[in-house]
Design a protein around this nucleic acid. Structure first.
Lengths: 120, 120
DNA sequence: AGAATACTTAGGTCAATACCTAAGTATTTA
DNA sequence: TAAATACTTAGGTATTGACCTAAGTATTCT
């Protein structure tokens, strides 16, 4: 059982859905819970005060963008996290932050140069 | 000019807005552009085929959740990235992924133990 | 001053979201 | 097999989101 190293190729536009899914506090909370251990629909539903069909809708959104998987055995459906999708979002954010940091460094260097030249 | 080291404390519920903001491709594109260099409203608007008020609305969303700042000088408003907010989202994602990975490791260890015991 | 520029505000449409209640269907359990 | 369990589907409401066009306001250029 390989601890998934490579991310699945992010289908174009998939990142929209991932960020969208994570913008809702209930869905983020579900992701947090599932990052600890898998859970059934009713176990999850017990934690929130909304009606089950509402929670179910959230679960569908999470599964739709690939953040979680589910499997039904008998009458119980169990959900679990699919970590590689979290990584898609994290990678995007990291890339932007790195670009930004590089830019700050360049600006620092530029200001330093200006300062030196100013001293002549 | 300090290259912001510490993130601003994420106001409760702010993370909703950050993920929400990043779920739109136009807004993500604006963030990418601004991570390279600041730009005015019309410079930004020139890149997208939507009407200016529509783009402006996107910019307000980005500024509303703190992902960008803007300043008006004369009749030109210039936008720039505020990197610490990207970090808020990135940190959350990283934390979830780390929890998940820890769980996978535990599961590996457990399976390994089962396997060994099976060999007795 | 008058025209051009760079946003800004107002207001309107249409689709998607987040909920809900009520009524299924499929699987155990008694 | 009847009742309980664990979802599922249907259908309805109210809000929010992403666009648009048209009509401002504030600055700068001529």
């Amino acid at each position: 059982m390989m601890p998934q190293t490579a991310s699945a190729p992010p289908p174009p536009g998939a990142i929209d859905g991932i960020f969208r899914a994570l913008s809702d506090p209930t869905r983020r909370d579900v992701v947090e819970r599932l990052s600890l251990k898998p859970a059934s629909v009713s176990e999850l539903a017990a934690s929130y005060k909304m009606a089950m069909p509402s929670l179910l809708e959230h679960l569908k959104v999470l599964e739709g963008c690939g953040l979680v998987h589910s499997e039904k055995k008998g009458r119980v459906r169990t959900y679990q996290l699919a970590a590689d999708r979290l990584k898609v979002a994290e990678d995007w954010l990291g890339a932007q932050r790195r670009l930004w940091e590089r830019r700050l460094d360049q600006m620092d260097a530029y200001l330093l140069k200006l300062k030196k030249e100013g001293l002549k």
